[in-house]
Each structure stands twice: as structure tokens, then as C-alpha cells.
Design a protein around this nucleic acid. Structure first.
Length: 495
RNA sequence: GGCACCGUAGCUCAGCUGGUUAGAGCGCAGGACUCAUAAGCCUGAGGUCACAGGAUCGUUCCCUGUCGGUGCUACCA
């Protein structure tokens, strides 16, 4: 019935701790995946870690462990983070997995017609172990600011991927939306970037300057550079090339990436795919960044927000809710504890939580918990679906909240508590009351459906209250008020 | 420098291809109620739609310029 769909997230480099940006990747992909699963599709959902490269090797050396031992330790927090935000991923890849390494070497073989060797010349800092552009060298007067050493003019052999061969195909795929870049303005940026043609890309380094990586087939002196290794994960994780099942999921339906790495996914990655004769992904979703109080997250400012703290204090669903509704999917968004707590207390506590509570309480109080029969509430799902399918997740939640608001208004209009006063003496009133409350319960079940991709736990809680014919006796508040970062308004006012 | 975008109520933002009194949420003020997490509901105050020209019968919404801000990208020195 449903078709197979595949969603991917960018694999972070493990040389550091996961932060809110990674959580956004996991969350956005997960919302999309849950929505598709809800609609009967089989979804494969990949996450993983990028583990090769000098930075890891250096850190490992500092700690006196092998690179493998180092990454074996460093990848775990990313997995934990994904699980903590409730990501229901199906596949976790590490680029150090033996299957991946082998598969990347296979990809290299397939790419061979498009690979050539060339000499790279540039300014090299032996401390940083990397090349710098002429501009950077000039701006620092020829001395590396990190190491206080002059740059050396070096030349080294690299293999290059002739990505330029694919300029026309890539451009066409983007222009015609065969490979759709979302949002539209990012698509324009990419097209602008390749208007003079796609540049060939270096895909290897001499082993002497990059030891921790996948060996280039048939050339022991060269090791694969990050992009070929890392980007290939999207294919290798689902079994390419040796497990045929990869064909059931590729091309990916959506590849979620941060705006900073869009270019690699929109240009180099398609070049690789075209080079090995595999079709391009259908969509690339570039999301924005999360600012903290209007400023970029930076370690030196110490303004980072730890997703763990939010989730530990307010729960996963509150976390998912805020970042889905108050951070626009494709633009930058802002987090402050004030905004978060306002949304939590007002929207989750007052609007939704209290609504669930008041309906459950009335059914319990007036009808001993028995929910009457009600025709399935009919709602126009169009705007909601449209919003999700266009990745306007915040709008989908706005639509959901309209339903919540409407039900609150409905209850105030019909006043079940008034009707209830006559239910013992008037059978018509009793029936009316039953209908009203059944309608309310039915609407809340609808809300639960709408919330499922965003707040799976909450959706389940609501369903368990209303999906059987009897409301459980002890109903606990879904979102108890929390005032950890803002003053409690119930506290005495100071005017 | 090039390309793209934005500047609308205190705040965050909607306003499709131009058409009578410019919208929402939050925040703020007031009101009626009591089923509910003192929640929710109703009403209200608040905008020269950055600025200046132009085209149009008519523009927040089209064109030009100015000022201010953002993203991507390039580069001189």
C-alpha cells in the first residue's frame, strides 16, 4: 500500500559534543518520518557519525589512545542525543563500519572514469595540517596565528573527481526540481554558485598527511578525503552496493541538512551519484540555525543551550513542540528560556493540557467516565497536510492549535456544566450532554492524530484517555506548570 | 562588488496574481462565567504598512532611488 521512503540526516563529525543543531536534524527528520509512517508508508530513517580525519586522529593521540578507540567513545553521545529527542531512526551508520569502508572503496572504483590525479599547490601549516588560501596567508602576514609558524609553500598529489562533467545534469536536476532544494531561496543560492560550472573536487590526500581514513584502492599512498567518505554513507547504510534492498529505498525522499553544508549535498553529492550511475535524491531540506537570545551559538560566549537540560526539565514532547513550532523549519530561529517557558505554560499547559483535563473531568464527573457515541468529527485536513508536505512544520502546529482553540470556544459556548444541572430530571438534557462531551472527546482524538508526528508521547496519552468508552479515573495533568526561568505569575504582583 | 531577501501594531510574524473600515498569536487593559492545571471564553487599546519619487482610476502588495538589516558569493588592496 504505502511506498518505501527514505529520510536521511547529516552525519556529524564526532570531534566534539552534540549540540542543539544536531538535535534539529534528528527532530526534523523524525517528524517527517512519523508523519509518513502514520500515513502507511514504510520509512527508513538514517542517522550516524563521521569518524575519519586528522582532527580525530590528533585528539586520539593527545589522549594516548588509538583513533578507533577515540571514535568508539565519541560517537555515543550523538546516538544518545538522537534517542533523547525521540528520534525513531532505523539505521545508525558510523563511517568506520567495515561495510561502509568497503562500500566506499567500491564507489571509488565505480567513479574511476571520472577521477584524475593532479598536483595541489598552496600554503600549508604543519601545525594545522592543512592548506590555506592566498588571502588567508596574506591577512596573517604569512604566519599561522594558531601556531605562530610561517606557512610553507607545498605541493601534493591529490585525486580529483571531475565533478565539472556533471554541471549540466546537476543544474537541470535543481532547476526542474527533480532534485528539489527546499527552501526556494537556497535553491537560488546553489544555482548561483554553479552558474559558471561545478568545480572539480579533491577526494584524496597523501597518506602522510591523512592517515586516519579509507584507503584509496590500488594506491597505498593515498587516503580518501572526507566528502567522498562521509557523503557516501547515505547509500552504504542501506546496503549499497551488495545488499539489493538499498534499491527499495533509494532515491532518498528527503535529505535533511543544515544550511552550512547544503552546497556539499546539492553539488558534490549529486556529482558522486551521477558518477556511479545512481539517481539523485528527490529533495534536500536545508534548515536554519538556532540562535540563543538573538546571538549565534558560540562556545566562547558560553551561551549554548543543552537539549538535555530542556528535555530533563520539561519532557521530550515540550522540546519537540518548541523547536517544531517556534523555530521556522527553513529559517533561523531563536531560543530563550523566557520564550520557551511561555510556550510551555501557555500553549501546552493552558491551551492543550487544560483542555484535555477539563473534558476528561466533565466526562468523569457527569457520566461516571462513560463516553457516549459520537459521529467521527470531520475536519479539513488539507491545510495541515499541505503544511507538513511543504515542511512548514510550524504552520502544521498552528493549524492544530486552531482546533484546540475551537474546542475551548465550543465548550464555553455550549456550557456542558449548565446542561449537566438538568441531566437527572431531563433525559433530553442528558442526551445532549452526552453528545457534547462525546464530540469533545472525538475532537481530542483528532488532535492526538495531528500531534502524532510532533509529540508522539502526548498523542498516546490523549488516546489512552478517550479511545476506549471509559475515561480512566485518575487523570494527571499533561503539562504541569513549570516556572524555573521566569517568575510565577501567581506570586504576589509588584506593580 | 555581484546575486537574493527583508524592513507591517510593544514583541514574533501573516498578508495569494494591486480594489471598500490592514490581520493573527504573545504581551497589555477591562468584562462575564466556573467544567478545568485561577485554566478557558468575550471585549478593547495600539499601526503615516522604513522613506522619497513614479506608473495606475486606485497599492502595504508593481517600478526607480535612498536609508537600515539579513543570507549566499566574489574580490581589490
Amino acid at each position: 500500500m504505502g511506498k518505501n521512503l527514505y529520510v536521511t540526516t547529516a552525519i556529524p563529525y564526532v570531534n566534539g559534543a552534540p549540540h542543539i543543531g544536531h538535535a534539529m536534524d534528528y527532530l526534523l527528520a523524525d517528524i517527517w518520518a512519523r508523519y509518513q509512517v502514520q500515513n502507511g508508508h514504510k520509512v527508513r530513517f538514517q542517522i550516524g557519525t563521521d569518524e575519519h580525519g586528522n582532527k580525530n586522529a590528533m585528539k586520539a593521540a593527545e589522549q594516548g589512545v588509538s583513533p578507533q578507540e577515540f571514535v568508539d567513545k565519541m560517537y555515543l553521545p550523538f546516538k544518545e542525543m538522537a534517542e533523547k529527542v525521540g528520534s525513531g531512526y532505523t539505521d545508525f551508520i558510523r563511517t568506520t563500519d567495515p561495510h561502509h569502508r568497503g562500500a566506499v572503496q567500491y564507489i571509488w572504483q565505480q567513479l574511476k572514469p571520472h577521477i584524475y590525479k593532479n598536483t595541489y599547490e598552496g600554503w600549508y601549516c604543519t601545525g594545522c595540517e592543512q592548506f590555506y588560501t592566498d588571502k588567508e596567508v596574506q591577512m596573517t602576514n604569512g604566519i599561522c596565528p594558531n601556531h605562530q609558524k610561517p606557512y610553507e609553500h607545498l605541493s601534493e598529489e591529490n585525486y580529483y573527481l571531475r565533478a565539472s562533467d556533471f554541471t549540466d545534469k546537476i543544474r537541470e536536476a535543481i532547476e526542474t526540481n527533480k532534485m528539489r532544494i527546499i527552501p526556494e531561496f537556497r535553491k537560488k543560492e546553489v544555482l548561483e554558485l554553479i552558474k559558471d560550472g561545478v568545480k572539480d573536487v579533491s577526494i584524496s590526500r597523501p597518506r602522510k598527511s591523512l592517515s586516519w581514513g579509507v584507503a584509496v584502492p590500488d594506491d597505498p599512498e593515498q587516503v580518501m578525503y572526507v566528502w567522498l567518505d562521509a557523503l557516501s554513507n547515505y547509500l552504504t547504510v542501506i546496503g549499497y552496493p551488495d545488499h539489493e534492498e538499498w534499491r527499495e529505498y533509494w532515491p532518498a525522499d528527503v535529505q535533511v541538512v543544515g544550511k552550512d553544508i547544503l552546497r556539499f549535498h546539492a553539488i558534490i553529492w549529486p556529482a558522486i551519484l551521477l558518477g556511479i550511475g545512481v539517481s539523485l535524491p528527490k529533495r534536500i531540506l536545508a534548515h536554519g540555525f538556532v540562535n540563543i537570545g538573538g546571538s549565534k551559538i558560540s562556545k566562547s560566549l558560553g551561551n549554548g543551550i543543552d537539549p538535555h537540560e530542556i528535555i530533563d526539565q520539561y519532557g521530550v514532547d515540550a522540546f519537540r513542540y518548541y523547536f517544531a513550532r517556534h523555530i521556522p523549519t527553513t529559517d533561523d530561529g531563536d531560543f530563550t528560556w523566557e520564550k520557551f517557558e511561555l510556550a510551555y505554560n501557555n500553549e501546552l499547559g493552558n491551551d492543550l493540557g487544560n483542555l484535555v483535563q477539563r473534558v476528561a473531568a466533565m466526562i468523569t464527573r457527569y457520566q461516571a467516565g462513560v463516553i457516549g457515541d459520537s459521529p467521527q468529527a470531520e475536519h479539513d485536513m488539507g491545510p495541515y497536510r499541505e503544511a507538513i508536505e511543504q515542511f512548514r512544520f510550524n504552520d502544521a502546529l498552528n493549524v492544530t492549535w486552531n482546533t484546540v482553540r475551537s474546542l475551548n470556544q465550543y465548550l464555553d459556548q455550549v456550557k456542558p456544566w449548565e446542561i449537566a444541572k438538568e441531566r437527572d430530571t431531563n433525559t433530553e438534557a442528558a442526551q445532549h450532554l452526552s453528545d457534547v462531551l462525546a464530540h469533545a472527546a472525538s475532537t481530542l482524538l483528532q488532535v492526538a492524530d495531528l500531534l502524532t508526528p510532533f509529540m508522539p508521547t502526548t498523542a498516546t496519552s490523549i488516546r489512552t484517555l478517550f479511545e476506549t468508552s471509559v475515561v480512566p479515573a485518575d487523570v494527571k495533568p499533561l503539562f504541569p506548570k513549570i516556572y524555573l526561568h521566569t517568575p510565577d505569575p501567581k506570586a504576589p504582583k509588584t506593580t
